[in-house]
């Protein structure tokens, strides 16, 4: 999987039956206005008129609409799902834009101009000329404790964020530590509390980056954003400070010690393999000659 497998049926030119990137121009303009507003008010959830997409809710309809609105024919698109380029969700979205926009696609993080992601931030540092588009299931960080939308909007308006800490308090009370491991709430530029989508909290420090970050929630009809170099602080307590934790292992395939790892059960004896969740990062390291110490033989033994 060093190169994207070309769809045998993909035509050489854009299919004329679809408008560029599937959505009509009016809709894309509407979404762009929402994106501009969201960039102007970092962390604020801007409502938008989410369209029906040819995929079910939960499969990234919000991210797809945002990507469609910012894509240009010159862009190179990368799509990852939990860090991987080769999962069903990533492959189908990538094919969707190949088909409807005819844009170039890539698995290499550095080569992409737009990266749509579900649940991860790539390990490689992103640049100012890149856009990271997140698929968001539930954009409202206060939702689990306050069911009323009217009330949560009021809380954002008046910066009443005590409730967010109640959630962290509950974590410590129940687990002895802040057990929230993903979708860890952050405060943006000292103003809005934001849900960074279900990325692992390991990724939270990376939210302060050079690239533009756009968040799209299709079912909930919200778009929010982080402009480049926006201050993003993970919430915590003085005596229980935020920690960007990961599994305490090296990647079994490439030996990386700084990347977020997935845990795989590889046999019936409970044998485990830790490997980079960012497949591009892992493959690139292996190509550069890095090898995990012990995992590769195990894998082969199973196969």
């Amino acid at each position: 999987m060093t190169q994207i497998e070309q769809d045998k049926n993909a035509p050489d030119t854009v299919m004329s039956d679809y408008n560029f990137a599937y959505l009509d121009e009016q809709t894309k303009r509407m979404i762009r206005r929402a994106i501009l507003k969201s960039l102007a008010i970092p962390g604020y959830q801007v409502p938008f008129a989410s369209r029906e997409m040819p995929m079910p809710y939960g499969w990234g309809t919000g991210g797809v609409q945002v990507s469609a609105a910012v894509l240009t024919p010159d862009d190179t698109l990368k799509v990852i799902d939990q860090g991987a380029d080769d999962t069903t969700n990533a492959v189908s979205i990538r094919r969707f834009f190949e088909k409807t926009a005819g844009v170039a696609v890539t698995e290499a993080t550095a080569e992409a101009s737009i990266i749509q992601t579900r649940h991860r931030i790539p390990e490689a540092e992103l640049r100012e000329d890149q856009v990271l588009v997140y698929q968001v299931p539930i954009p409202e960080p206060l939702r689990f404790l306050e069911p009323s939308e009217v009330e949560t909007r009021k809380m954002h308006e008046l910066e009443e964020y005590g409730l967010m800490h109640v959630k962290l308090y509950e974590d410590i009370a129940q687990h002895g530590a802040i057990a929230t491991a993903y979708a860890y709430p952050v405060k943006v530029e000292g103003r809005y509390v934001m849900d960074p989508s279900p990325i692992p909290k390991f990724d939270n420090p990376k939210l302060e980056m050079a690239a533009i970050q756009l968040f799209g929630a299709g079912r909930e009809q919200r778009i929010y954003a982080l402009p480049p170099y926006t201050q993003v602080v993970s919430l915590d307590f003085e005596d229980y400070p935020f920690e960007a934790s990961k599994a305490d292992h090296l990647c079994g395939l490439c030996g990386a010690e700084d990347s977020y790892l997935d845990e795989l059960i590889v046999d019936d004896e409970g044998g485990r393999l830790f490997m980079c969740s960012d497949t591009d990062y892992c493959v690139a390291r292996q190509a550069a000659g890095h090898r995990g110490s012990d995992a590769a033989p195990t894998l082969e033994g199973v196969a």
Binding site: G162, H165, V166, Y169, Q174, F237, E238, D239, Y240
Partner: peptide, 25 residues
Amino acid sequence: RMNVSAGGNVGERLMAVGARHYGKI
């Protein structure tokens, strides 16, 4: 808040006015 522990219920107002020390709360 019925889905929050007794301690969290009592602590909420403290956190709402800026308390950020779990042990003290």
